[in-house]
């Protein structure tokens, strides 16, 4: 499963797609390629920020689990769902 996730992450990162997203600290995102805008919730904002900085899925999940005091299981499974969601929109 983690393998497939990594490929998905790679795809989103192609051409710096993820990096090009205009992400504001308020949770407002603008995709200059499609003109679509989004809102992130606070955990989404954190996750996206960590991923944009090049953290692996594992590291991102670890960080979130520490920050919010949830188990690694909870953090990584919801991170997976989040990544799928990004994959659909980007």
């Amino acid at each position: 499963m983690i393998e497939k996730m990594d490929t998905l992450l790679q795809r989103i990162c192609v051409d710096g797609r993820l990096a090009k997203l205009a992400v504001s600290e308020t949770g407002f995102i603008f995709d200059p390629q499609t003109g679509q805008s989004f809102t992130l919730n606070q955990t989404g904002l954190l996750a996206l920020d960590l991923l944009k900085r090049g953290n692996s899925l594992e590291m991102t999940a670890q960080y979130m689990s520490d920050e919010y005091e949830v188990t690694m299981d909870v953090a990584s499974s919801s991170l997976e769902a989040f990544l799928y969601q990004l994959g659909r929109y980007l």
């Binding site: 205009a22 504001s24 308020t26 949770g27 407002f28 603008f30 805008s37 809102t39």
Partner: peptide, 10 residues
């Protein structure tokens, strides 16, 4: 964009 963002978020 920043104006639109302010309206969306704030």
């Amino acid at each position: 964009l920043p104006q639109f963002e302010s309206m969306m978020i704030d």
